[in-house]
Design a protein around this nucleic acid. Structure first.
Lengths: 245, 245
DNA sequence: CGCGTCATTGACCGCAGTCAAAATAAGTGG
DNA sequence: CCACTTATTTTGACTGCGGTCAATGACGCG
């Protein structure tokens, strides 16, 4: 029952998010373009470990993450896999311009994606300047996020990176930093998280328990946590809290 | 004589690069837009350590690097400075959309920049869909590069990162990977390089001399190197050589 | 109940951060 | 051109974090 399923076209509109960046993008389309877009795109349910794009191969498909988590990973010569970035809902995967994919795109959890042919999207963008503007803004945000992440990896200690990751989770789950008591879920396995944070599962374990010992978090289950002291978490992460409202 | 100098407008066209991404972008403009762009933009010579954008403050100016190196740095709570990314010729600095700058943009060497008001650039993009497409493609490349860098930082050993940095230098200086005997210059100080690679000058020194001992490079001067064995360098860096042509 | 998977804990060790000092380079003024 | 200062690079000794290997424990599933 977890098979990759393709929904009929009329489902696409139904499953499209009501708000957020993707919704804005589709709204920026003209009526004609929008119906064409809805017809040509499809919503798929991919199960964890599905590979959507292979490193070095040209992929004709691009798409948006609706739910779940994708990873952009790279297989190193020594057999290791390291994760260069995560793709969260609203993020785009695949290359707009032609050329081989630079990463392997793989689902880390069961994921819903909105996908379509690259050629279609290219022609849509040419016809829709407003949508291009929106997309540009979003890509710039992604670039910002990627650089942010670079900073975190510079911070040498593993606890620091783990704390940063937890802050990231809080930021995008609750949104409001004030409301603590709701637990946050990682959404990816310990091993995947380790690749993403540039460390190994053993060190992750130690880091999580170090935070737990300090009463900063409570470990509900290996990938679900309750934040007890957000300020302390921010201190450990080394980030300044820009209390945006 | 190193003072920040503003050239008269007619100089801008003279100093514009003949080829590369920026040239393409300007060519994509309509004749009218292009003359407006040339009138409103200016070429400046900024000396090392000049700060072009302050972290957290709104900057009304954006621009392109023509020569030299800029850094996007962040001042950490503990007083350290870590460099999230380098801006090389053709790269853009500053935010297109409004909002405070997320990083401090600072010149690491004497640099020539082509700068203009953000509002001007925004309005130009609205009028020039083709240019927007080009810009989008370029930003996607930058995103790719940022993720590439994330991977390098994941690689734990310092020698590995240093090797990767040298490969980067070879890639964009010579271009052709075959021609070795020309030395490559770092273009930034040892301390800056250390922040960028997420390490300290002492470790850098050890790494460079480790490579020299293995006859992989020859140190001409602390920021100038001759590549003796490119294949070995690639091996150390952990990258696959995609011998593009 | 037995097996496989994953998280945890422990022991060990190598890499790199830290502090400190020596060596080299670069600048300054006479 | 040389004596002197200052900055940068290099080298050394020490320590700690975290990667590695291995063993134990917890959990889910057949």
């Amino acid at each position: 029952m977890l098979r990759t399923a393709t929904h009929p076209n009329w489902d696409v509109e139904f499953f499209l998010p009501q708000e957020g960046y993707l919704a804005e993008l589709v709204e920026a389309f003209s009526a004609e373009t929008r119906s064409q877009f809805l017809q040509m795109s499809q919503i798929r349910t991919v199960r964890a470990r599905t590979v959507l794009a292979v490193d070095g191969q040209e992929a004709a498909e691009i798409g948006f993450v609706l739910s779940g988590i994708l990873a952009m990973s790279k297989h190193l010569p020594d057999g290791r896999v390291s994760i260069a970035g995560l793709l969260l809902p609203n993020d785009m995967y695949g290359r707009i311009s032609s050329g081989p994919s630079q990463h392997q795109v793989e689902a880390l959890s069961e994921t819903h994606v909105l996908s379509f042919k690259r050629s279609l999207f290219q022609s849509l963008l040419l016809k829709e300047p407003d949508a291009t503007q929106l997309l540009l803004a979003h890509v710039l945000d992604e670039l910002e996020a990627a650089r942010e992440w670079t900073l975190l990896l510079n911070g040498s200690r593993v606890v620091q990176r783990v704390a940063s990751f937890l802050v990231l989770l809080v930021r995008r789950s609750g949104g409001h930093l004030a409301s603590l008591p709701e637990p946050v879920q990682a959404g990816l396995s310990r091993e995947d998280l380790a690749s993403y944070l540039g460390t190994r599962p053993e060190s992750l374990s130690r880091a999580f328990h170090e935070l737990a010992d300090k009463k900063i978090i409570r470990i509900l289950d290996p990938s679900e946590f309750e934040i007890l002291d957000l300020q302390a978490l921010l201190d450990v992460s080394g980030q300044d809290l820009i209390t945006s409202e």
